[in-house]
């Protein structure tokens, strides 16, 4: 018990826990829209592009002689991620290139650009490790404020415009026929995804950022029937795995980002395994009791081939 108290009063842990908590809530909110739009891999694409932004910020910082030289890394990531997400949305809209091809090109370009630029900035690929896999233990107070501001913005838009974002993610054609600003709403989702990637970068790292957006949603949709509840369950799971994962790393020296993602996938595996058992416990109801039977079938076995015979004129 005293160990727990020690952890909570540790200022490093306090800052890290606040960041993990906020990211745990907001990432699945955005992830729910991405899954519904069938763009589950968008977060990965943006994450890779953000790496180029990190390196670019580093390069600019080094050129300007700023100390420490990665002070512009996070702003660089924000700019690159937003630019990348807007680019993906434009490409998707034009329909010239299929969405996944555009994403693939961004993946490669983002990583290659990042490694190339960090070399020019006088660093090594090793300098990128903290961004690739997270470095939550080194969160500063100003980092926490940036996280609070960005997560606040993500939740404000993501929850405040839920009905409109749902409409456009669920059925873009209908949204268009309702005169909704479909382009702006799609852009909003893309920019939200970009902001989520940059805030989650600190917690789980760019390579695992998408997992935090998508895996909780995968868990949520296993256990609910509604969009709203899927989002709620996903956020609860997000917070739970982030805080639990981070707390474990206080006592055991493992990578927090990797642990959080492994925990999330573990929860998914358990829920998926239990799902058929739980579903079976519900009463087996006829899903369409009001639909009259279309063919008369003889009881058990004998009637196997009968419907087809009756079909033939």
């Amino acid at each position: 018990m005293s160990g727990l108290w020690e952890m909570i009063t540790d200022p490093f842990m306090q800052r890290a826990l606040v960041a993990a908590l906020l990211v745990g809530v907001s990432a699945p909110v955005v992830g729910t829209y991405l899954v519904q739009k069938r763009l589950a891999l968008l977060g990965d694409g943006i994450g890779h592009v953000a790496l180029t932004g990190v390196a670019l910020g580093w390069l600019v910082g080094a050129a300007m002689g700023l100390v420490p030289d990665d002070v512009l890394a996070v702003p660089g990531a924000v700019v690159a991620a937003v630019a990348g997400s807007v680019l993906i949305e434009v490409v998707r809209r034009r329909g010239r290139t299929s969405g996944d091809l555009a994403l693939a090109i961004l993946f490669y370009g983002g990583i290659a650009g990042g490694v190339l630029l960090i070399g020019l900035a006088g660093g090594s690929s090793g300098s990128l490790m903290a961004y690739l896999f997270g470095s939550i233990s080194s969160v500063t107070l100003s980092d926490v404020w940036v996280t609070v501001a960005l997560c606040g913005l993500i939740l404000l838009i993501g929850l405040g415009l839920r009905a409109a974002l749902f409409s456009v993610s669920h059925d873009e054609e209908f949204a268009q026929s309702s005169g909704l600003p479909v382009w702006a709403l799609n852009m909003a989702v893309a920019v939200l995804a970009a902001l989520t990637v940059t805030v989650a970068m600190r917690v789980v790292g760019l390579l695992l950022v998408s997992a935090l957006m998508i895996v909780p949603v995968a868990i949520g949709q296993l256990v609910t029937r509604s969009f709203r509840r899927t989002m709620l369950v996903a956020s609860v799971v997000g917070v739970a795995v982030c805080v639990t994962g981070l707390s474990i790393t206080y006592w055991h020296n493992v990578s927090p980002g990797a642990l959080i993602v492994v925990l999330a996938i573990g929860v998914y595996a358990v829920v998926a395994a239990l799902h058929p058992v739980l579903a079976r416990r519900q009463a087996p109801v006829d899903p369409h009791p009001d639909i009259p039977d279309d063919v008369a079938v003889s009881p058990a076995g004998a009637g196997r081939a009968a419907p087809q015979e009756e079909c033939t004129p």
């Binding site: 519904q36 009905a163 993610s169 600003p181 949520g220």
Partner: peptide, 22 residues
């Protein structure tokens, strides 16, 4: 769609049009 949605949620999206986003 990728995420389950209830009949009520789908119908509710019909209440949004033009500049009405909520």
């Amino acid at each position: 769609a990728g995420v389950p949605s209830t009949a009520a949620e789908v119908v509710a999206s019909g209440l949004l049009h033009g500049r009405r986003l909520r």
